[in-house]
Design a protein around this nucleic acid. Structure first.
Lengths: 201, 201
DNA sequence: AAATGGGTATGACAAATGTCATAACTTTGC
DNA sequence: GCAAAGTTATGACATTTGTCATACCCATTT
């Protein structure tokens, strides 16, 4: 019998998936959580064969949980189950040696078969990820530019941003100007939009 | 046998719910769609006893579909199934005479029992909605102020906004100024954030 | 009929923003 | 060891933004 742990904060999906996993004769759900912290603690204790982790969860993300499982060197295989095929998430997941990465935009029987696959030592990555890996635009912003833009998101004045970052006003404006030109936009508002769309900040 | 139609764009949830509904002896899923347009057309044709509609879907929202069902005066009962308990959504749903409004943050057996309830002529509204109805802050912006702010979201200059709305630059700045003061913020960026948080735009 | 509130418009002013040139200092790569 | 790239900083400038006073028109309410 394959033991499965499910961490998913949306109750409707959590309970629905639990039920359909239980329908399979060789699978059983030994526990589930609606936040990352609870999931983490329980997985360490229960050591299930497979942990299915949503990324966006309260308290701790599924990727944080995956890291901890990896570092604790327990046998549990991890399948990330999330909505978006984002390069950055996927990279972190790979770094945490997850066995699977599925999108919620695929049917539930995919998940069932993925569970069986990963206990066999196989890996299962959604094909859409491959497309995103090659097509995703590279972040043109330097680390400092990113941090300036992140501060700009909250909306204070240039002066407030410069204080938070311990820079001069002029420097902040220089950075912002450089960011606008790199992103091909004409103001903070547009820059923030573009950067968010591309998950650069 | 109660016939159910399911409109939900997230495949994982769509297929999982289909399966657990099918598990019930008295319920059957006669069709499902991943966008509002397809759902609308099929519901008109199949006339199921119950239609479960997600709100956020491609092409047409679940609320649009609910409106059409209402106007077509067919017997199909509608249950809205969505993530957030937002006043505006709920009001539109009530206007379309839906029989149920459930949140994805409740377990799937709630949905099953709601299906049986609504065919009996009962209504099922998530209790969390009641809280939101009374606590939601009232929108302080006039219709025109809202439209100015909506245009400001895209990020162009004042002049671009004024052209899109056929107003003078000064008028646009007056509106923005009034908006800032009403929302207690100090710029477009913050105003947009506050307005979005409160679902005013 | 008068008052109120919303929509629209000016003009004027102060402050914030964006651009550019220029320059010094670090770190990193070849 | 030097070139390239990134970080930080000035000063100067044009433009944009936000604020305020004031005004006219049009509905709705009193």
């Amino acid at each position: 019998m394959i033991t499965v742990y499910l961490a998913e904060d949306q109750s409707m999906l959590n309970s629905a998936l639990t039920q359909i996993i239980e329908l399979e004769d060789d699978l059983t759900v030994v526990g589930s959580a609606k936040d990352g912290q609870a999931a983490s603690a329980e997985i360490m204790r229960l050591k299930p064969d497979v942990a299915i982790l949503d990324i966006e969860m309260p308290k701790q993300t599924g990727l944080d949980v995956a890291d901890q499982i990896h570092q604790a060197q327990i046998e549990t295989k991890v399948i990330i189950l999330t909505t978006f095929a984002q390069k950055a998430y996927f990279e972190r997941a790979v770094a945490a040696s997850v066995s699977g990465y599925l999108l919620k935009d695929s049917p539930s029987d995919q998940l069932i078969s993925a569970i069986r696959d990963v206990v066999q030592g196989l890996t299962r990555f959604d094909p859409e990820l491959v497309i995103n890996m090659v097509s995703a635009a590279h972040n043109p912003l330097t680390a400092r530019e990113q941090s300036v833009l992140v501060e700009a998101v909250t909306g204070g004045t240039t002066h407030e941003i410069s204080e938070r970052l311990h820079l001069s006003d002029g420097t902040v404006r220089n950075y912002l100007s450089a960011i606008f030109s790199k992103l091909g936009v004409r103001g903070r508002l547009e820059a923030i939009q573009v950067a968010k769309e591309n998950k650069w900040i």
